[in-house]
């Protein structure tokens, strides 16, 4: 019962945040809504016993990605030229009615396709007996250095590359 309540709260937070990201007209508000969604997803992970995943979601997204986004908004704000260099009026940064109509059409097409696939799967899916929730930390730790050690090492190289690359790209150059 408490699990269900927690699940409902997390799902509500996730959906409300996602809707907020779609419909708000303020970039800063969109970032805060995204933070809500990410916390909701962490709650959803916790509901299905993915404790380590939930904690990583909190650490990496709430502590890292959202603050990076907020920083980028601050460092790039303040431009409001309404026309491009050919003198044609630009579409507003956060979209206008036209772009929303495009978005609606593409969402409709994609969701029809996806729902059709999912419905076919759901008809044949039978939920078996679920195992009890256990701690996944030890298992993940073991798997990371045995079965998935190649992916682990590659992701460490990827992160190092991202770190150096981000610093090299964003550095202001002379001249």
């Amino acid at each position: 019962m408490f699990n269900d309540t927690f699940f409902l709260l997390s799902a509500g937070l996730t959906l409300a945040g996602a809707l907020g990201v779609v419909f708000t007209k303020n970039l800063m508000h969109a970032c805060v809504m995204l933070l809500g969604t990410l916390f909701g997803v962490a709650g959803l992970y916790a509901c299905i016993g993915a404790d380590f995943l939930a904690a990583s979601q909190l650490v990496i997204y709430a502590g890292g990605v959202v603050i990076l986004m907020l920083f980028a908004v601050m460092l790039t704000g303040g431009s409001s030229d309404q026309a491009n260099k050919f003198g044609i009026e630009k579409i507003a940064g956060m979209g206008n009615t036209k772009t929303y109509i495009f978005a609606g059409v593409s969402v409709a097409v994609i969701s029809l396709t996806l729902l059709k696939i999912m419905a076919g799967y759901m008809k044949t899916f039978e939920q078996g007996e679920l195992p009890p929730l256990t701690s996944t930390v030890e298992e993940i730790g073991t798997l990371l250095v045995t079965d998935h050690v190649l992916a682990f090492e590659i992701s460490s190289i990827l992160l190092l590359g991202a770190l150096v690359g981000a610093a090299a790209i964003a550095r202001p150059r002379k001249g």
């Binding site: 404790d51 990583s56 909190l58 650490v59 709430a62 502590g63 890292g64 603050i67």
Partner: peptide, 17 residues
């Protein structure tokens, strides 16, 4: 929690936001 200290670091970063 079995991920206690990880959780604490994650939730504590809300203060930064």
């Amino acid at each position: 929690l079995n991920v206690g200290v990880f959780y604490l670091i994650g939730v504590g970063s809300l203060v930064g936001v």
